[in-house]
Each structure stands twice: as structure tokens, then as C-alpha cells.
Simulated scan of single mutants.
Amino acid sequence: MKLNGKTAIVTGAASGFGTGIAAKFIAEGARVLVADINGTGAEAAAKSLGENAIACQVDVGSAASINAMAELAITTYGKLDILVNNAGVTHLPMPMETVTEDDFDRVYNVNIKSIYLAAKAFVPHMKANGAGAILNVASTAGVSPRPNLNWYNASKGWVITATKAMAVELAPFGIRVNALNPVAGETPLLKSFMGEDTPEMRAKFLSTIPIGRFSTPEDMGNAASFLCSDEASMITGVAMEVDGGRCI
């Protein structure tokens, strides 16, 4: 019960890594706001996670939507201990110059602007409390970029740099900021990363992961619960790879 009594928000929690992180947090004693742009999916996930989960529909690229989520969380819980910026999108694999401006803007809003908006909404609250843990979900793509995912790679590199900058600035206020770098997993984004989901493409992708399997929601939940717990009280500014050796 390493998160006993803690309150948390997990964005992008209707499926995939987000649901895995929320489930692990609840198993460790936390109460969790399950946030996602898919409101119906968030409701279903929260229901499956039990009484310590509540749902929230949110567009993480919208200041008004993020602020409404913040009001709901603080009204419901009184204070927020943990913020997990997990929501993320990608564009399909293609040469960089052929990615549309609309797709670029979508990647920017969900992967980058969301962290800025969440910081504006929650950092003052955490500063007032003198404590807090923020976890940003980046990617191995920000460490070891793949061709044809250029703007997604760049967005996740931004997340890693932002995490380190946030950590340095917020440490004096008792707020820790870390990141996770997962390799691709069995989530709704997998097909987008690969371009097509075929046995041959999966075999090719898995050949780059020494451990020989994709990341799972459980892997992410285990790493996230540690970094957001008091057991990691001396850890900040870290971008932990949860990648089976992919980046070695």
C-alpha cells in the first residue's frame, strides 16, 4: 500500500498504459481520477476499477477542459498528490514532410501543450501544499528516434527535457517530476506506430527489444507507482526506460 491515502489524476486512462497505471495506483491504496477524452471509456474504466476511481472527460489540449478537471479533482479530493500526464497520440509512419499540419498540431496539443496546461492548473496547488509528484509519460522514441515518426519522436524528446527542467525548478517546493520511457505496448497506439499490425511487422518490431516482448500496462503501473511513492523521495528529473533493453 505504498500510495495509501494519496490522490491522483491519470490522463489517457480509459485504455492501455493509463488504465494499467490507474489500476496499480488503486491497488496501492490511492484514489484516482480516471481522465480521458473518451468520456464513455473513462466511465467504463472507472467502473471496472471500483469505488476508488471516478471518471472525468477531458481534452488535455484545452485550457478550459484542464481547468474543469482540476476543479473536479480538488473539489472531490481536497488536494491532489499525484499527476500523471499519460495522454498521448502519434501520427502514422510517413516521411516528415508529408505529415499534415492538422496531424502535427494534434501531436503538439496532446503530447506537449497538455503538460504546460496541467502545470499551470496544478503546480500552484502543489506549491501551496509543499508536496507533489508529477509523472510525464514520454517514450523510447524521445531517446532513440525511429524514421518516419519524426514529429512524434520530437514531441517525446520535448517531454524528457521538460521533465528535467520542471524537476530542477520545482524541487525547492517539495515537488518531484519524473518521466517514463516505454517501448511500444499492446495499446490502441500500437498499430499506429507500426503502420500495419501483421505478424511480420510485429516480429520485426520485437526483434529490436532484447527482452523480446512489448511493454504492458502492468509494467507501466509498477514503474509509475514506485516513482510516485515516498519510496522514490530522492528521485527527481529521471526519465526511466521501461523498454526491455530497447535503448541500449
Rank of each mutant, 00 (worst) to 15 (best):
G244C: 09
D219C: 00
G244V: 01
F214M: 08
S15P: 01
V183I: 14
A171K: 14
S48E: 15
C56F: 02
I9Y: 02
F173C: 14
G12D: 10
I37Q: 06
I248L: 09
V183G: 00
S139H: 03
A162K: 02
R176G: 04
I115Q: 11
D219N: 00
A64K: 12
T140F: 02
A154R: 05
A232G: 09
V177M: 12
E97R: 15
R246W: 14
A55L: 10
F104K: 08
F193Q: 05
I235P: 05
A154Q: 10
N129C: 15
G12C: 13
N67K: 14
A53I: 01
K47W: 15
A14G: 14
V238S: 05
I235L: 09
E43R: 15
A27C: 07
T216P: 10
E101A: 15
D243E: 03
M166L: 13
G18R: 03
D59E: 14
A68E: 14
A162Y: 06
Y116N: 09
T208N: 09
V159A: 02
K191L: 13
K127N: 08
E196P: 05
P95A: 15
E218D: 14
A179Q: 00
L49Y: 04
A53P: 04
S155K: 02
V168N: 07
N181L: 11
P145G: 07
A171I: 12
A154L: 11
P147K: 11
D36M: 10
K6N: 01
L72K: 07
M240D: 12
N4V: 06
A239R: 00
K164A: 08
G5I: 06
G88K: 00
P217G: 08
A68T: 11
D59H: 10
Y116V: 14
R246Y: 15
G12I: 07
Q57F: 10
I54G: 06
L135W: 01
A128P: 07
I112Y: 04
A23T: 11
V84P: 04
A133M: 11
S155D: 10
F25W: 06
P93K: 04
R246D: 06
G221T: 03
L72D: 09
M194D: 04
L189R: 05
G61K: 02
T11D: 12
L135M: 05
E196L: 01
L149M: 12
E231W: 04
D59A: 12
S215Y: 01
S139W: 05
G5S: 02
